[in-house]
């Protein structure tokens, strides 16, 4: 089999998913995720490769890729900033966080900075309502945001490629102290 864009390593990672399912089609979601992790987005040739690999038609992969919001159908910046705008976050200032990000990054919603570092998106509920407002950057959550905290996070990512302000395990809001 000759593949258009998927590397040998990407294909191996996808194939490692096969034993989990009795039906190869179930690998569609994991395959799209893996392809995106390796390529930055889900391109048409990547979807054709996945179809070839999973013995599906390209449309079967395409219709899945376009249904779910986490698949990027176009290239995005190195850091994809996604701010939650659903009610609990909106009540506590999600809009001002978005406005602040637009100013700090000099881009609008759906745009990418010229240096290709940051893309900004506004998304629906990310299940972090008790630590609103919040945003997700790539695969990490950043919670209880303030404009100052947002700037610190952007600086950290620019300088070090990571930020200690990301939510780690066991860093959720403390359990209630009941007396």
């Amino acid at each position: 089999m000759k593949f258009k864009v998927l590397s040998k390593e990407t294909i191996q990672r996808i194939e490692a998913q096969y034993p989990k399912y009795p039906d190869l089609r179930s690998v569609t979601l994991p395959a799209l995720r893996i392809a995106q992790e390796d390529l930055g987005y889900v391109s048409e040739p990547a979807m054709i490769d996945i179809a070839e690999l999973l013995d599906l038609t390209p449309i079967q992969v395409y219709e899945v890729a376009t249904f779910y919001t986490q698949y990027n159908m176009k290239p995005v910046g190195k850091y994809l900033v996604q701010v939650c705008k659903t009610l609990s976050c909106a009540l506590l200032g999600a809009m001002s966080i978005v406005e602040h990000l637009q100013k700090s990054l000099g881009i609008g919603i759906g745009e990418t900075t010229n240096d290709g570092f940051f893309s900004l998106k506004v998304v629906e509920c990310l299940a972090s309502c008790g630590s609103a407002p919040m945003m997700q950057i790539n695969n990490r959550y950043y919670e209880n945001l303030t404009p100052e905290k947002v700037d610190q996070i952007l600086d950290d990512l620019r300088e070090n490629g990571r930020s200690d302000l990301a939510t780690g395990p066991f860093m959720l809001p403390l359990l209630q102290e009941q007396s």
Binding site: S88, L91, C129, G130, S131, L172, L175, Q176
Partner: peptide
């Protein structure tokens, strides 16, 4: 109960 919005101590209880 996941409590959020305009409360002093949001959280899971």
């Amino acid at each position: 109960f996941s409590v959020s919005g305009h409360v002093k101590k949001p959280g899971n209880y």
